[in-house]
């Protein structure tokens, strides 16, 4: 498999105001994301998740080290547009990333910037809206839609540019459970059916549990990295950095503290029920 994003010895600090020293976010960060994979990046507030995301399409440039996207060095200015075509970004607040006041016009915004001919834009827009299940809403005003719907519009706006990779920076933080489900289903489908690489930044454990791989950031380092089962079974490490595991795993962990030795790899209700059945069957 080829590499979609690779971060090599990245260091970054936000510049300080006046003469105060800046805030160091990364000192020596390394991460590779394989093409076509679905990676969740977990971490508490202020762990550098968003800063990392902004390096993926050259909104921020490394102070040291390199970030490569689809083989392109993000710090080369000539390649900027190529980098941004390659990696689409979806942000937390859906209201602040929708440009136009008609759904389809907003989805068209990206392709229009690329200078594509109008019939081709029309085709891309329709296709993108169908892929996120918002085609019927193409003539609606975005401000009248629900949070989950708005976020799907934002995703459509990104995939209409046909990127190889989508980076979502806490896309569900402002949504209700239904909206969160909608967004997550859409993203999972795009990854599975279209082979788009997905980097999902979140602090919801249950969302991260649905990814293929989970990277836990803390203090500017990837402290845990592996499949959801591998990562969430490290309950103690997660607790020590202010995170937690899904409740199903937490339940097994609490039982283990009472003297049981259950496996900590159950993420779904069914897995948890089966594990408990084995231990408690009369």
């Amino acid at each position: 498999m080829s590499t979609a994003i690779s971060v090599e010895h990245l260091s970054y600090s936000y510049p300080g105001v006046d003469d105060t020293p800046g805030t160091v976010v990364f000192e020596d960060m390394n991460l590779t994301v394989e093409s076509g994979s679905f990676v969740a990046v977990l971490g508490g507030n202020g762990c550098g998740k968003s800063t990392l995301a902004k390096h993926f399409n050259a909104i921020l440039l490394p102070c040291g080290g390199k970030v490569y996207v689809c083989g392109l060095d993000t710090s080369v200015e000539d390649k900027l547009m190529q980098v941004r075509r390659c990696v689409g970004m979806v942000f937390q607040n859906p209201d602040n990333q929708i440009v136009a006041n008609v759904v389809e016009e907003d989805v068209a915004f990206g392709p229009e910037n690329l200078g594509i001919a109008s019939p081709a834009i029309r085709q891309r827009v329709d296709q993108a809206l169908k892929q996120v299940g918002m085609y019927e809403y193409r003539e609606h005003a975005p401000h009248l839609l629900s949070g989950g719907q708005k976020q799907r519009i934002a995703i459509a706006g990104v995939i209409a540019m046909e990127p190889k990779c989508i980076v979502l920076d806490e896309p569900t933080a402002m949504l209700d459970p239904k909206g969160r489900r909608e967004v997550l289903e859409t993203v999972t489908r795009l990854n599975r059916e279209k082979g788009i690489t997905v980097v999902l930044i979140t602090h919801h454990m249950d969302e991260a549990a649905k990814a293929e791989r989970v990277v836990v950031l803390h203090g500017g380092k990837a402290v845990l990295d592996g499949t959801p089962k591998e990562v969430f079974s490290q309950v103690e490490t997660l607790h020590s950095i202010g995170l937690c595991a899904p409740d199903t795993t937490e339940l097994c962990f609490m039982l283990n503290q009472q003297g049981y030795s259950l496996e900590l790899t159950c993420l779904t209700d069914e897995e948890c029920a089966q594990t408990l059945m084995k231990a408690f069957k009369v």
């Binding site: 910037n113 109008s118 834009i121």
Partner: peptide
């Protein structure tokens, strides 16, 4: 907008 490759009116097309 920058992330969606906006660079002003130059080279922009319309749907």
């Amino acid at each position: 907008m920058e992330c969606r490759c906006y660079q002003g009116g130059e080279g922009r097309t319309k749907m």
